[in-house]
Design a protein around this nucleic acid. Structure first.
Length: 473
RNA sequence: CGUGGGGUAGAGCAGCCUGGUAGCUCGUUUGGCUCAUAACCAAAAGGUCGUUGGUUCAAAUCCAACCCCCACAACCA
């Protein structure tokens, strides 16, 4: 039995869960379920990122204490994750006292690579943030949101000297010691590594207070990445516990927009701590709404809960795990979602279960379920281990569609009419066993459906489900 | 000259690395079947593979230039 540690990106809880979070969770969950089915012991981390100005501001607007605000949002995310049927084992919050304590210790361990420096740049009082030189020029030195001129401000920050580890990280990525998927993202990271500016990891308390204080300097608070990235190991109990049983992570799932922090800064932090590097970082794409990026200003945001409500969770997982390519961006439209549900879940799979179960029931066919052990096809295993989940899912579907074709070719109803009992039995058992085989491969993606199918055919007497698996709408 | 991805039938995509009669799913049309959720199976129609030029007996596939779309560019997956 091998141990596998799988992680998800922890969302910033200043808003509602969206489709992107769901993708991250679902991919990690498929991975976890797959490895568990292979007999591995799996830890799956999820969590929430709860510090920072935006959250503090939001709480202020709502006139509630910050802690109360983040408690509520963290709970919100937790119930979302549960709704997605994500088989997580650990939930970490960056406001956990233990996490905060551990991050401080981590900071101290890294002190040899941390230095203090002055930052100078254009600052907008209204936005309460620094903007780039380029943005300043484009706006003619005046903030378009606040109609105020930018001010030149200076502040002191702590920086992490990423450059100390540049060579090591480059080699690790190059040699796939950290396997970055997909390959074109690896290339992108290699390019990006050529310029590795040191990363600002703190803010003065004059600007930010809702965060973990920097040990030994009350005037500074840790900035997002140090705090957030550390969650992957603080949740395991680092530094006071020996985490070598679980760390390095088998796979870390992240959105492509935060890949750079996971592929460069995060390894730099780990190397600074003398910890091994994660084995794989899987960067998934974004979900577009009708070809456009979802955004609040365009108003085309698709609410995941709304999608789940339409046909249930299994349909949601189906669409986003199969029709959204694991690595590339993909599109969501309600029309496509309806088509996928009706043509594929209802017609292909639901109907297949219905017709096979009815045939078995009418002819009193039973099957010895002991013969249906979860053995994955080599092709499926390969795809799953390369994290090509949507491709693996396609493969499962080819099997399901193939079964519909075989039923038509073998015509078991004719065998029944002609009284060919032995042939009928062989035929039906073959079909059912192959369905259960495909069902095992389906299980990491659609766990509830797979269980239902197993129950339909595994009982003493095979009966079609009282209500179809995926009723048509 | 920021970085990366993409432009192939009405739609969504595969093929490109390792050149050799252009493939899949949905949709459309027609036929078949009846175990099944009017589901299933089969067949047909539909493409000058972004543009131009080059290499080659042969290019969607290799090379060059150009056009167009998208994402990322120190915190909104």
């Amino acid at each position: 039995m091998t141990k596998k540690y799988i992680t998800t990106a922890i969302p910033y809880v200043n808003g509602k869960p969206h489709i992107g979070h769901a993708i991250d969770y679902c991919l990690a969950d498929v991975c976890a379920r797959y490895y568990r089915a292979c007999g591995d012991s799996v830890k799956l981390q999820v969590g929430t990122d709860e510090h920072g100005n935006k959250i503090a501001q939001k709480a202020k607007e709502l006139n509630v204490p910050v802690q109360e605000y983040v408690d509520e949002n963290a709970a919100n995310f937790r119930s979302f994750i549960k709704k997605l049927n994500v088989s997580y084992t650990d939930f970490v919050r960056t406001t956990d006292k233990k996490h905060e304590q551990r991050v401080k210790e981590i900071w101290q361990k890294l002190s040899g690579h941390i230095y203090k420096a002055e930052y100078e740049g254009w600052y907008c009082v209204g936005c309460e943030r620094y903007i780039t030189e380029k943005e300043c020029q484009e706006n003619g030195g005046i903030c378009p949101d606040h109609q105020k001129p930018y001010e030149k401000l200076k502040e002191e920050n702590y920086y992490y000297r990423v450059a100390d580890f540049k060579e090591q990280i480059r080699d690790a990525i190059e040699e796939d010691e950290i396997l970055i998927l997909p390959d074109f993202r690896k290339k992108e990271m290699m390019r990006l590594l050529e310029e590795t500016p040191d990363v600002s990891i703190s803010r003065p308390t004059s600007q930010l207070t809702w965060g973990v204080p920097v040990p030994g300097d009350e005037s500074q608070v840790m900035y997002v990445w140090m705090d957030a990235l550390a969650n992957y190991i603080t949740v395991l109990g680092y530094p006071e516990k020996d985490i070598s049983g679980w760390w390095p992570a088998t796979a870390q799932f992240v959105g492509k927009d935060i890949l750079r922090f996971h592929a460069i800064l995060w390894p730099a932090l780990l190397l600074g701590l003398g910890l091994p590097l994660p084995k794989t970082i899987v960067s998934h794409g974004m979900v577009l709404a009708d070809g456009q990026k979802m955004s609040k200003s365009i108003g085309n945001v698709v609410e995941p809960l709304e999608v789940i409500d339409k046909y249930g969770l299994e349909a949601f997982r189906y669409y986003f795990l199969r029709h959204v390519d694991t690595f590339a961006d993909a599109d969501f439209t309600w029309d496509k979602y309806d088509d996928a549900y009706n043509n594929e879940l209802a017609n292909d799979l639901g109907n297949l279960v219905q017709r096979l179960a009815t045939l078995a029931s009418k002819n009193d066919i039973r099957i010895n379920t002991g013969t249906s052990i979860a053995i994955y096809s080599e092709e499926y295993d390969d795809l799953m281990r390369e994290y090509k989940f949507s491709k693996a899912f396609d493969l499962v579907w080819v099997k399901i569609q193939g079964l519909n074709k075989r039923i038509d070719e073998e015509k078991p109803w004719n065998l029944a009419k002609e009284g060919e009992i032995a042939k009928l039995y062989t035929c039906m058992c073959g079909l059912i066993k192959d369905l259960l085989q495909a069902n095992h491969e389906l299980a990491p993606f659609l766990p509830e459906t797979a269980e239902k199918i197993q129950n339909v055919f595994a009982g003493d007497k095979i009966q079609p489900p009282k209500t179809p698996l995926f009723p048509k709408h």
